[in-house]
């Protein structure tokens, strides 16, 4: 077991969004979370990553033997959590490669390792960029600056590949991707998965799950997981929509 979320309650601006969520994810497992708009999917992602605007009012989250909620966002990242943003921000004046090097060295420093050798770093980064079919010119451009929607998402998975997290939360990484980009992104995620990275996939569409086969699928509604199943659950949702499941959960 890598992460165990128990009875999690989260509020934003004093409005409760997550209302007693339970979820356990094992090492190397891929869990997909689906659910209607406003059900709390992004709130869960931001909360796990440690965004300061999300207040955990009750519950526990255990991650690799630590109390995750005790850690600040940067400490979580260095401990191996990665958030792939739904809307990656553009940061003008900070190059992609500069940010990645700083991030990688922050991890190494926390682990008591020396800074990465510049030549080794470039070789490693170029290899990962090639995997994500990301042109090398993106490395020296400002973070996400002038990137198309698809390039931004590829850049997220590229960063994930460089940072090699233990647990990746991918918040609607598939939105805005054409089929070719989707395959590249899925390929990147699958390689990480082979390296025992656990993944929480937040998505609206079953399509992504054709390329990244989840071990489990959960339906999040009104701040709680109302149903869990295997990948067939996603197909069922695709065919019938959420109404039936929501009605069944209410009954």
């Amino acid at each position: 077991m890598l992460i165990k979320i128990n009875n999690l309650h989260v509020s934003v601006n004093e409005t409760e969004i997550i209302k007693g969520l339970n979820l356990t994810i094992g090492e190397g497992e891929v869990h997909a979370i689906m659910g209607p708009n406003g059900s709390g999917k992004s709130t869960l992602a931001q909360t796990l990553a440690g965004h300061p605007n999300y207040d955990v009012t009750a519950g526990t989250v255990e991650f690799a033997g630590q109390n995750l909620l005790d850690l600040a966002a940067d400490e979580r990242a260095r401990a191996g959590i990665f958030l792939g943003f739904q809307y990656p921000v553009e940061i003008s004046g900070v190059s992609n490669i500069y940010m990645l090097k700083a991030a990688l060295n922050a991890r190494r420093k926390a682990a008591g390792k020396p800074e990465i050798d510049a030549v080794e770093f470039m070789r490693f980064v170029k290899e990962k960029a090639a995997l994500m079919k990301l042109d090398q010119k993106f490395l020296t451009r400002g973070v996400n600056e002038g990137f198309s929607g698809g390039e931004k998402k590829r850049n997220e998975i590229f960063q994930m590949a460089v940072l090699e997290p233990k647990f990746a939360i991918l918040d609607e990484t598939d939105s805005g991707l054409d089929i070719d980009a989707l395959k590249v992104v899925a390929n990147g995620v699958n390689q990480q998965r082979d390296d025992k990275c656990s993944v929480l996939l937040i998505t609206h569409y079953q399509r992504l799950l054709d390329y990244i086969q989840p071990d489990f699928v959960h339906v999040l509604a009104n701040g709680q997981i109302i149903r869990s199943g295997d990948k067939d659950l996603a197909l069922e949702l695709e065919a019938n929509g959420y109404d039936e499941i929501l009605a069944a959960a209410k009954a």
């Binding site: 990553a49 966002a73 921000v89 900070v94 940010m99 700083a102 991030a103 922050a106 940072l163």
Partner: peptide, 25 residues
């Protein structure tokens, strides 16, 4: 932008300094 950098593992001071430097860019 701050949270984005912090979520990559940079501490608050590092994130802040990077953004200040980018501003002077």
């Amino acid at each position: 932008s701050m949270f984005y950098l912090i979520s990559r593992g940079l501490n608050i001071d590092e994130a802040r300094n990077i953004l200040i430097r980018a501003f002077a860019g």
